[in-house]
């Protein structure tokens, strides 16, 4: 009998794990954006002394994980599980990062939803009594993602207005069975939603239905309303997706206009930094959570947050074969208080 399940897709954690520390490392462009004062480390060079962008991404993720563990006054051998993922084929950044850390490792792929996927699983593992300390992390890198999904960096192509800019950065969170919060109290696991969008330059639109499904399901399962949250924030729907979500949520009977935003809208100044619709990538929700949301929760400016990271589960091959883009969104509630 699954005692902790409420509704159809949500788990209410009875021993909510505490987010005892976080770390965020971002590239120079992110470090020039509106959230620059929140990040732990801003790199001057996105290669970070490595010989390839893939190696640089693995290093960024590894260092973010190490920094989060260090911020919690722990050492890697005290961590029982590592949940991490990234965008590259066979999630190599995560595998190479985990190679150095020697922590039992679960590699995850949920595209840009991976941060809440990892936190969902990490929180449930701790709540279930299978571990006391876990790390959840994701990374992405603009230049490694461009060469896998799009064009060479020096190719003179024009980007459509709906395209998004992959975040260079990694975020890591240490979850613990003990601690003073913020706590992960609810986990709402998303279902794939696919409304037939095939344009990989319009990922926001492909992911909106998944975000709507998960958010409305979360409200129905928990009995919460939008007003119960200080902030409802999706992963990387970016500017077009954000407005579409607001409009369609209103049609579902929920008004999110007072407390909703999207991580992909917050990272860059789209006009000044020329990032078109906004940010995307596994690192997007990860660094916004690890830097901005976490710090504002510690300060008490935010007390209850619904983070819904969103993923577009396509590949360069599926796009060439004209397959539509399946969207996914996983939600977690982060609370400063537990009741």
């Amino acid at each position: 009998m699954a005692l902790k399940r409420i509704g159809t897709q949500t788990v209410k954690l009875s021993n909510p794990p505490s987010m005892v520390s976080t770390a965020s490392i971002v590239g120079p462009k992110e470090g020039d954006g509106p959230l620059k004062d929140y990040y732990d480390v801003i790199l001057e060079d996105d290669l970070w002394g490595e010989e390839s962008f893939e190696k640089a991404e693995a290093k960024i993720q590894e260092e973010a994980i190490k920094l989060a563990i260090q911020n919690a006054d722990l050492s890697p051998n005290q961590i029982e599980y590592l949940f991490s993922g990234d965008l590259l084929n066979q999630i190599t950044s995560s595998g190479y990062a985990a190679r150095q850390l020697e922590i039992p490792y679960f590699g995850l792929y949920g595209a840009c939803s991976t941060m809440t996927e990892s936190l969902s699983l990490g929180a449930m593992i701790i709540d279930g009594g299978f571990a006391d300390k876990v790390v959840c992390a994701t990374s992405s890198h603009f230049s490694s993602a461009e060469r896998q999904f799009r064009f060479p960096l020096e190719y003179g192509a024009q980007r459509p207005f709906s395209s998004q800019w992959t975040v260079t950065g990694a975020g890591a969170v240490v979850l613990s069975s003990t601690g003073n919060g913020p706590y992960i109290t609810y986990v709402t696991t998303g279902r794939i939603q696919d409304y037939g969008i095939t344009d990989a330059n319009n990922m926001g639109a492909a992911m909106v239905p998944a975000a709507i499904d998960t958010i409305t399901r979360h409200f129905k399962d928990t009995g919460y309303n939008p007003e119960d949250y200080d902030l409802i924030i999706t992963g990387d729907l970016a500017s077009i997706g954000k407005n579409v979500l607001l409009d369609l949520m209103r049609k579902e009977g929920y008004d999110l206009s007072n407390n909703y935003t999207d991580c992909g809208v917050e990272i860059f100044d789209n006009v000044r930094q020329d990032t078109h619709a906004g940010a995307s990538g596994c690192g997007c929700a990860a660094v916004v959570l690890s830097a901005y949301i976490y710090e504002e929760m510690l300060k008490g400016n935010l007390n209850r947050v619904l983070l819904v990271a969103t993923g577009a589960l396509h590949s360069p091959i599926s796009v060439l074969q004209n397959e539509s883009i399946p969207g996914i969104a996983h939600g977690i509630t982060i609370d400063n208080m537990i009741f």
Binding site: F161, Y195, N202, V244
Partner: peptide, 15 residues
Amino acid sequence: MSNKEYQKYIEERIP
């Protein structure tokens, strides 16, 4: 909303 309706709705909102 059907797939077609959603795609049309999105089409109108892309700059």
